[in-house]
Nucleic acid binder design. Structure first.
Length: 465
DNA sequence: AGGCGGTACTG
DNA sequence: CAGTACC
DNA sequence: GCCT
């Protein structure tokens, strides 16, 4: 099943191999901290009719999350009568968090392999994988269509490249929404199953395409002339190029960069010279970003992230053995290299209060954390370094265990993946340091997918851009 | 005409 | 408060 | 920028 608004429905319902449910269902379930009966929230449009799940045979079935009894549709692709399984388990258990999650996973997803710790296995095995592809839907709700590789359709790639130049220029001007418009149009082109060689290839899509008259005109220009004047103007604008370069320094954004360019600073070297003369040109974080500019341009090899994980866990366990860590982000998604390292530090909020500052303190004493960028009560952003290695960016998040699955989902990303299907919304509502009400209780990420009734997507499949 | 993500930290 | 960053 |  898919949580959808009306626009979503008209766009994607025909692609869904699972039932569709209105967003109102999610909103009210979240608000009231219990799952509303889906039968009260059905779309009645003909196109969605075939997607709707048949009403439960037992009219007494309740969707109360406190007793956590939900239906699991774990073989959505099966053409035969839908196989269903009712899962019913109590929320009390003496086992550890990872034991719990493993056994739950095995119960819910018999075909799922549970990985050993990433540091002890080869990269390709380091993420949870589904052993039998036929045991889950081919097309996930969060992955509406596969993205074509650039070589598939040269013209599409060209269009995306040139529109991307314009989009970046708007991003630097902080024209947030025009940027968004271009991003969506580019995503659309990239997802097309055919090459755009005439403008009719775009027009024939019909419906909501994210491509309006303006972008359509630009696409026409690219198709007919092979060029886009506006993009060339941007690329030839040295001021633009300089702003972009300066924005690569952590802590410098478009506004600061434009200010620097206005002062005649157009390169990293010039910026360093300028800071030597005027110490207050940059704030503390920007100076740190500049100091490690070259190192931070490099991605961190997966093996080194695993080393860091080992080290941080050792520190954490010494501070408080009831606390554990989880490396999320692109590492958890199985990438061979990571732009930074995201680490969730999770345990009881009481213990975290004392332990979290202590953990970063010890890492600093060891010389592993070399610079602090942000340290709040619930998050730490900084720079780490191991002997003989480059500096790298590290983020630590203190997560109370009842919010852990939401935080894990959030920080595993990708950002684009999270932006689909209400994932962002449900995580936001339930993972927040300032949150007062208790979150909807879930034990692991899979239960969040259940909550949304979206087929589970393993981390390795969430790297959509 | 108005929406397009929400939150947390720095200075 | 604006700016920047996080996914 | 696009969409409702």
């Amino acid at each position: 099943m898919v949580v959808a608004d009306t626009a979503m429905l008209s766009k994607y319902a025909h692609l869904c191999e699972v039932p569709v449910r209105p967003a109102r269902w999610l909103t009210e379930s979240v608000r009231d901290h219990r799952l509303k009966s889906p039968d009260l929230y059905r779309f009645c449009t003909p196109s969605a009719e075939t997607c709707l799940r048949a009403p439960p045979s037992s009219s007494k079935r309740r969707y109360n999350y406190s007793e956590f009894r939900v239906e699991v549709n774990y073989d959505l692709k099966s053409q035969s009568a839908k196989r269903r399984k009712v899962v019913d388990y109590s929320l009390s258990s003496g086992s550890t968090a990872s034991d719990q999650s493993d056994s739950i996973v095995k119960n819910l997803f018999p075909v799922l392999k549970i990985s050993r710790p990433p540091s002890t296995v080869r990269h390709s095995e380091a993420v949870e994988t589904v052993s039998s592809p036929s045991a889950r839907p081919r097309r996930w709700a969060c992955e509406i269509r596969p993205t074509m590789s650039d070589t598939d359709f040269p013209m599409n790639a060209k269009i995306c490249e040139l529109l991307g130049v314009v989009q970046e220029a708007y991003a630097l001007k902080k024209d947030h929404f025009r940027t968004l418009g271009y991003q969506r149009a580019i995503a659309k082109i990239r997802s097309l199953p055919h090459e755009v060689l005439t403008i009719d290839d775009v027009r024939s899509l019909g419906g909501e395409t994210s491509i309006g008259s303006r972008i359509e005109r630009k696409i026409t220009e690219i198709i007919t002339t092979g060029r886009l004047l506006q993009a060339e103007t941007v690329l030839n604008n040295s001021e633009n190029v300089a702003v972009k370069t300066l924005c690569d320094v952590w802590g410098i954004g478009p506004v600061k960069a434009m200010g620097l360019v206005a002062e005649g600073i157009t390169s990293i070297e010039q910026l360093r010279a300028a800071v030597r003369k005027n110490d207050s040109l940059l704030d503390l974080n920007q100076k740190i970003g500049l100091k490690h500019y070259e190192d931070l341009l490099h991605r961190i090899p997966r093996e080194q992230v695993a080393e860091l994980e080992y080290y941080v866990r050792r520190i954490v366990k010494r501070v408080d053995s009831s606390i554990d860590i989880k490396v999320a982000g692109s590492y958890l998604r199985g990438k061979k290299s990571c732009g930074d390292v995201d680490i969730l530090v999770y345990g009881s909020s009481q213990k975290l209060k004392k332990a979290f500052p202590e953990i970063t303190k010890r890492m600093k004493k060891d010389g592993v954390l070399t610079d602090d960028l942000v340290h709040g009560a619930g998050k730490y952003f900084g720079i780490f370094k191991f002997p003989g290695r480059r500096h790298g960016r590290i983020d630590l998040f203190a997560v109370p265990h009842e919010q852990y699955p939401y935080a894990l989902l959030t920080y595993t990303g990708s950002a684009v993946f999270n932006s689909h299907q209400g994932l962002q919304k449900v995580c936001r509502t339930n993972y927040s340091r300032t949150r007062v009400e208790p979150p909807i209780r879930v034990r692991d990420e899979k239960e969040i997918f259940l909550l949304l009734d979206i087929p589970y997507v393993p981390p390795s499949a969430r790297s959509i851009s």
